[in-house]
Deep mutational scan, measured.
Amino acid sequence: GATAVSEWTEYKTADGKTYYYNNRTDESTWEKPQELK
């Protein structure tokens, strides 16, 4: 099967917290998305 390329990108805020942003859905989350686990 084809490997899905994750749409999630990991970013850090100014105070060093990590969050994740999805370019396709324009969604952001503090929790690590399922695709990255």
Results as ranks from 00 to 15, higher is better:
residue 1 G to T: 14
residue 1 G to A: 13
residue 1 G to H: 13
residue 1 G to L: 14
residue 2 A to F: 13
residue 2 A to G: 13
residue 2 A to E: 12
residue 3 T to A: 14
residue 3 T to S: 14
residue 3 T to R: 06
residue 3 T to N: 14
residue 4 A to R: 07
residue 4 A to S: 12
residue 4 A to N: 11
residue 4 A to I: 14
residue 5 V to Y: 12
residue 5 V to D: 11
residue 7 E to K: 03
residue 7 E to P: 08
residue 7 E to T: 06
residue 8 W to L: 01
residue 8 W to T: 00
residue 8 W to R: 01
residue 8 W to G: 00
residue 8 W to K: 00
residue 8 W to I: 01
residue 9 T to F: 10
residue 9 T to N: 07
residue 9 T to R: 11
residue 10 E to N: 01
residue 10 E to G: 01
residue 10 E to W: 05
residue 11 Y to E: 06
residue 11 Y to M: 15
residue 11 Y to K: 14
residue 12 K to D: 02
residue 12 K to T: 12
residue 12 K to L: 10
residue 13 T to P: 00
residue 13 T to Q: 04
residue 13 T to K: 02
residue 13 T to E: 02
residue 14 A to G: 07
residue 14 A to S: 10
residue 14 A to D: 09
residue 15 D to N: 07
residue 16 G to H: 02
residue 16 G to L: 01
residue 17 K to V: 08
residue 18 T to K: 06
residue 19 Y to S: 01
residue 19 Y to R: 04
residue 19 Y to V: 06
residue 20 Y to A: 00
residue 20 Y to F: 06
residue 20 Y to E: 00
residue 21 Y to R: 09
residue 21 Y to K: 10
residue 21 Y to S: 02
residue 22 N to D: 01
residue 22 N to A: 01
residue 22 N to K: 02
residue 22 N to T: 00
residue 22 N to P: 00
residue 22 N to Y: 03
residue 23 N to Y: 13
residue 23 N to M: 12
residue 23 N to T: 14
residue 23 N to D: 07
residue 23 N to H: 15
residue 23 N to L: 10
residue 24 R to A: 10
residue 24 R to E: 09
residue 24 R to S: 10
residue 24 R to V: 15
residue 24 R to W: 13
residue 25 T to I: 03
residue 25 T to P: 01
residue 25 T to W: 03
residue 25 T to S: 04
residue 27 E to F: 04
residue 28 S to H: 14
residue 28 S to F: 15
residue 28 S to W: 15
residue 28 S to M: 15
residue 28 S to I: 15
residue 28 S to E: 10
residue 28 S to R: 15
residue 29 T to S: 11
residue 29 T to K: 06
residue 29 T to L: 06
residue 30 W to P: 06
residue 30 W to G: 05
residue 30 W to D: 09
residue 31 E to Y: 07
residue 31 E to H: 08
residue 31 E to A: 05
residue 32 K to G: 03
residue 32 K to D: 04
residue 32 K to S: 04
residue 32 K to W: 04
residue 32 K to P: 07
residue 32 K to A: 06
residue 33 P to R: 00
residue 33 P to K: 01
residue 33 P to Y: 02
residue 33 P to E: 02
residue 33 P to A: 02
residue 33 P to N: 02
residue 34 Q to P: 14
residue 34 Q to S: 13
residue 34 Q to N: 14
residue 34 Q to I: 13
residue 34 Q to M: 11
residue 35 E to D: 11
residue 35 E to S: 12
residue 35 E to R: 03
residue 35 E to Y: 06
residue 35 E to W: 06
residue 35 E to H: 07
residue 36 L to C: 10
residue 36 L to I: 08
residue 36 L to P: 05
residue 36 L to M: 11
residue 36 L to R: 04
residue 37 K to A: 15
residue 37 K to L: 15
residue 37 K to H: 12
residue 37 K to Y: 15
residue 37 K to R: 13
residue 37 K to N: 14
